[in-house]
């Protein structure tokens, strides 16, 4: 593991702007990563897919349950 990967700062999630469909936008999450050496698009895609589940969870709690 390189140094950048261990010393990244974790951003307080409460201060992030969240568009519809999003809990933690990739553009902000990316800042916590070291430079991505492989396929950044893949990391972004999977992050956003799972982030949408977090979004749906709270809105489904509000709307359906």
């Amino acid at each position: 593991m390189n140094e950048a990967a261990t010393s990244h700062q974790v951003m307080p999630i409460e201060q992030i702007s969240r568009p519809p469909g999003t809990c933690f936008p990739w553009e902000r999450k990316k800042e916590e990563f070291p430079p991505i050496e492989g396929d950044e698009g893949l990391v972004k895609q999977i992050w956003e897919e799972i982030d949408t589940l977090g979004y749906l969870y709270i809105w489904q709690c509000l709307l359906s349950f």
Partner: peptide, 12 residues
């Protein structure tokens, strides 16, 4: 200001 944040941090 932040509906989703409000739901997670205050409402839930």
């Amino acid at each position: 200001a932040d509906p989703t944040g409000y739901l997670y941090n205050v409402w839930l």
